[in-house]
Simulated scan of single mutants.
Amino acid sequence: MKRLLVSIHDVAPHFEGEVDRLLELLTPILGGPRLAMLVVPNHWGKSPIGGDAAFRSRLRSWSDAGIEMFVHGWFHKDLNNHTGLANLKARHMTAGEGEFLGLDYRTAFQRMSEGKYLLEDITGQAVAGFIAPAWLYGHGAMRAIADCDFALAEDHMKVWQPSLPDKPLALGPVVTWASRSPARTASSLAFAALARKGLHLLDTVRIAVHPGDVTKTSILNSIEKTVVSFARRRSVGRYADLLENEALQ
């Protein structure tokens, strides 16, 4: 079965309006709230979910409506100094957002565990999994995620079970957009156009949107066009479907 998975990243209280706008755009195309949310417990240390009763209530309502909830880091902000390949990733693949790229095992495990406990306590349901900010994992994070009992993890090129890291459940690049500079926006728009033509052979296509996407009409138009293109040709699914499919094989 050809499957489409859609997610909203960086779900946090200070992005509530942007998340609402993305939901308004996506829900009619997907036939309901058939998507995932990546929740940041305290985005950049300025937006704690734990102290926001109204936002906690919204998270529970979204979860009750069937939206899958992923833990998406803790702060999202990267405070580490990097060298070598990690430095290249930190500089060119994100703008100070790769929180889990340089964390040691103990710190990564603590943040993952606390995020999991917090989100499950809010929603009353098991989280769908863990996805590192900017899809970047260091050695400590990769060790920790295998010990935190998450069902799923994702990076830019695959989805996998942390207990079976060498057996991907889905392969292929995430279609996403960048709003922080004109050059990155142009590049992401071009990639989305190519994806609409070139990724249809994949069993699973993943599309990820971010709060910053609502700041540019060109990105919103591209998101709508891209989601419509894939939703017309394949089933709109859930990340949990990947686990069910694996169990049947």
Results as ranks from 00 to 15, higher is better:
A108C: 11
A108V: 10
F109W: 09
Q110C: 10
Q110H: 12
R111F: 11
M112P: 09
S113C: 00
K116D: 08
K116S: 08
L118D: 00
L119Q: 03
D121S: 13
D121Q: 14
D121L: 11
T123Y: 01
Q125Y: 10
A126C: 00
V127C: 07
A128V: 13
A128H: 10
A128Y: 09
F130E: 08
I131H: 01
P133I: 11
L136V: 15
Y137R: 03
Y137I: 13
G138W: 13
G138H: 14
G138N: 06
H139W: 12
G140Q: 10
G140M: 01
A141G: 08
M142R: 01
R143W: 06
A144S: 09
I145A: 02
I145V: 15
A146N: 04
A146R: 15
D147K: 07
D149R: 02
A151N: 00
L152Q: 03
L152H: 00
A153S: 03
A153F: 02
D155G: 14
D155M: 14
D155C: 13
H156K: 12
K158A: 11
V159C: 05
Q161D: 10
Q161W: 03
P162I: 13
P165A: 01
D166I: 14
P168D: 09
L169I: 14
A170R: 03
L171H: 00
G172K: 04
P173K: 00
V175P: 12
T176Y: 09
A178S: 15
A178P: 04
A178Y: 13
S179V: 15
S181A: 00
P182N: 09
P182E: 15
P182R: 15
P182A: 05
A183W: 15
R184F: 13
R184N: 03
T185C: 11
S187Q: 14
S188V: 15
S188A: 08
S188I: 09
L189A: 07
A190P: 05
A190M: 05
A190K: 00
A193S: 12
A193E: 07
L194D: 15
L194C: 15
R196Y: 10
K197F: 15
K197Y: 07
G198K: 06
G198P: 10
G198Q: 14
L199S: 07
L199F: 14
H200I: 11
H200T: 12
L202S: 04
T204C: 08
T204F: 04
T204L: 04
V205G: 06
R206W: 14
R206L: 06
I207P: 00
I207C: 04
I207A: 01
A208N: 06
A208I: 14
V209Q: 08
V209W: 06
V209Y: 10
H210N: 14
D213Q: 03
T215N: 11
T215C: 14
T215R: 08
K216Q: 08
K216P: 03
S218W: 04
S218D: 00
L220C: 12
N221T: 13
N221Q: 11
S222H: 06
S222A: 13
I223E: 04
I223V: 13
K225C: 01
K225L: 08
K225D: 11
V227N: 08
V227Y: 09
V227R: 08
S229F: 09
S229W: 00
A231C: 05
A231V: 07
R232H: 02
R232N: 03
R233Y: 04
R233E: 09
R234M: 01
R234N: 05
V236I: 02
R238I: 07
Y239F: 06
A240H: 02
D241K: 05
L242E: 00
L243S: 01
E246R: 04
A247T: 01
Q249Y: 04
